[in-house]
Design a protein around this nucleic acid. Structure first.
Lengths: 123, 123
DNA sequence: GTCGTTGCAAAGCGTTTGCAGCCTA
DNA sequence: TAGGCTGCAAACGCTTTGCAACGAC
């Protein structure tokens, strides 16, 4: 990820402006507004490079392809609505307590995914 | 999932006796000790049926194919060692506090994955 | 005997890679 | 101009499906 190309600018922009995690195809669609000839392989290659640089982070969901979001936000978790399938960002972290780990285990990070129904679907 | 066949017995047994979540191929290998001719498609079909019945649950890991474990255990979470790649089961739940959700959201369940190094790898 | 279940092979899906040409620095 | 970057198509790994034979009830 060293050169500044139109493709990478478009991909970065797509992720920055989305406001929510995007799937690879969604990134492609949005970035193609800037660079019509853009290929899916380039999207994957760029996302991979950006992820390694720490500028993008992947969000994994059970049974679904990963979605990607701009990194650099504060530590947060996600809420997946089981009805509409949308993934929401939640501010803050719910894990205040030090978990009880087996002897010798060292904790480096954690991921929390909440399931339920969003405000729109719940009524 | 209505008939009782040797294949399904073998698959169920493999999951029951493993003590940790297994990948599809691991299930195949173990179940083939009982039923040598067993095919991978049958493993997937059976796991799917068992999952729908609630007897098996899938554990999703970032960037990896899912692993499967017998359900019915108490609510628990997992710890993934970044060095050796093993997935451990942790007793109990760390989420005591009601998380702050946006207005109207209804929480049904949650998944927590801890990352770090296990006792063996940490030293 | 019925019809759910199986193994095989082929198809499917998301992702990665090989390659020749392109374009940034 | 060198070498990273790109698009295309083929390859890949994991999972699902079509189909004819099989076997539980």
């Amino acid at each position: 990820m060293e050169r500044d190309t139109a493709q990478r600018r478009a991909i970065r922009r797509a992720l920055d402006e989305a406001g929510r995690p995007l799937g690879a195809l969604e990134v492609l669609e949005r970035a193609q507004r800037d660079v019509p000839g853009l290929g899916l392989a380039t999207v994957y290659r760029s996302i991979k490079a950006l992820t390694e640089r720490g500028e993008v982070s992947a969000v994994e969901l059970p049974g679904q392809p990963p979605r990607f979001e701009s990194a650099g936000k504060a530590h947060h978790h996600h809420f997946l609505c089981g009805k509409c399938g949308k993934l929401y960002e939640l501010d803050g972290c719910l894990i205040g307590l030090k978990p009880v780990l087996p002897r010798g285990f060292r904790l480096k990070s954690h991921e929390l995914l909440l399931h339920g129904e969003c405000g729109t679907c719940a009524r």
